[in-house]
Design a protein around this nucleic acid. Structure first.
Ligand SMILES: [Mn+2]
Ligand SMILES: [Mn+2]
Ligand SMILES: [Zn+2]
Ligand SMILES: [Zn+2]
Lengths: 142, 142
DNA sequence: CTGCTAACTTAGACATAGTTCTAATTTAAG
DNA sequence: CTTAAATTAGAACTATGTCTAAGTTAGCAG
């Protein structure tokens, strides 16, 4: 997706969801869309400061809350660390590199039916698989 | 498993792994084995205090570190909250109740082979499925 | 285009949960 | 009995996230 297309997509998303367009919000969503690395607040804040110097952490938090509220971004956490943000709204799983900590998307796949009394009394609303291992980069850098 | 059998199992585990036997450690491991609710430090500390009043939180932390070190307990976190502890060493998945927060074991099942270039450049060491929904108890209490 | 104002941004203080550390006391195990 | 190791109470620490009050701006009405 070209830079222009991404920009239009973001504009439309803001329009559609009634999120007010600010340079900071635009930057954060663009960053999440173009670099699907599941950045943390700290990382997004650092990136934002490289562009719009003097950005506040509070703005990053506020922006992310607004984007999550609007359904444009999903929040999750891994291993009790800082929250991570994901603008990929497709169903997918995640892979975490033991060595460098990178979090990568993994195409969706269904999981076998949970048979028998296992799932009888429970209702499952959603599930996700977290894979762990060594990422491609860490394999080659060896 | 009877209370006696559990006690013997714990004694043996301590012996085998060289973990020194203290009432606090015995209690924590017994509690994790007999009530597989994936308790947090806070919960274990509260339970411990009901029995051995005046237990320190530090002891619970120290105990759990020792047990994890010895491979008798596994630690994990959900949703960026406090660490949870699991004395069930079998391979298994977890179910989390959206409504009451309970964390339950789910029998192991394999996940389909991750085909194609998805897994080509990565090596997968482990994976786990986290299911979410409404637990049996929350279904009946309605 | 201009001015208005609610909404946003900023800097940094503040809050909090979770965990680790410390130094004195007690205890398991040989 | 001895002593290395464990326990205790509570202070201290840390990472993450929230709040505040003053300044700035997006978006709209006129
Ligand atoms: Mn993702
Ligand atoms: Mn478990
Ligand atoms: Zn890696
Ligand atoms: Zn429940």
């Amino acid at each position: 997706m070209s830079k222009l297309e991404t920009a239009q997509k973001i504009e439309q998303a803001f329009e559609r969801t009634g999120v007010r367009r600010t340079p900071q919000r635009f930057f954060v969503l663009e960053r999440l869309l173009t670099k699907p690395d599941h950045a943390t607040v700290e990382e997004l804040w650092a990136a934002l400061n490289r562009r719009h110097a003097r950005a506040s952490r509070a703005t990053v938090y506020n922006t992310l809350h607004a984007l999550v509220q609007a359904g444009l971004v999903r929040e999750f956490t891994l291993d009790g660390k800082a929250a991570r943000y994901d603008a990929n709204l497709e169903r997918h799983h995640h892979f975490v590199c033991d060595s460098c900590g990178a979090v990568e998307d993994v195409n969706w796949f269904d999981v076998p039916q949970l048979e028998g009394n296992e799932s009888e009394k429970r209702s499952i609303r959603s599930y996700e698989v977290t894979l762990r291992g060594k990422c491609a980069k860490c394999h080659s850098n060896n």
